[in-house]
Amino acid sequence: MITLEHLSKWYGSTQVLDDCSTQIEKGEVVVICGPSGSGKSTLIKCVNGLEPFQKGTISVDGISVGDPATNLPKLRSRIGMVFQSFELYPHMSVVGNICLAQLHVLKRSEDAARARALELLDRVGLRSHADRFPSTLSGGQQQRVAIARALALDPIAMLFDEPTSALDPEMINEVLDVMTELAKDGMTMVVVTHEMGFARRVADRVLFMDAGAIVEDAKTAAFFDKPVSERAARFLSKILHH
């Protein structure tokens, strides 16, 4: 469903993505890990066209992301994205956050959008917070709202960029639980995370990135059992002994 072929990207003269290729099937859950600055965020931002790239191709559901003729807003509305720092709209209520794109991208009616928003809030356990404002919620709650906001557009795939790294430890699980449910329901997911417990339990595959390149692309069990590259092994031992 998501195919990357020889993807390279530069910021000015610094190369941040180096010949990345991989393929993600429908319903697959892929975790991306790797040291800070290795290009994980950049990679997933290329997938929905938030970042331009100079070489290679990305196609999502058969649509080429880099093609200037592609209607990017339309493509993005079919891919949900969740950010490390939530990025809720602080001037809108929780329901307002979840309805905005439903109203103005999908052109749903107010009633339909609100109904869908409440249904999703139920699913992430925040129905009673519908009319609160983001700043009155805890980090974990805000991130669950952000997930609901992305799901409201009925995406064909979800991208997560370190969804739990800005959270206090006691709030990490409430977010991971929602993501685990989502994976069980068959959502196609690409998750940048260092939560190796989550990766082990939920991921089908793990990609390890270093210096802009995908240095390891393995089935979850194989990755944790015996990573091929020495860099991935070192990274794993460091993070698991933490």
Partner: peptide, 16 residues
């Protein structure tokens, strides 16, 4: 830029 990225990621146009 964060909230703008979030908006764009949901398919809103830059004008929206």
């Amino acid at each position: 830029r964060g909230q703008a990225s979030a908006g764009l990621a949901t398919g809103l146009t830059l004008a929206q």
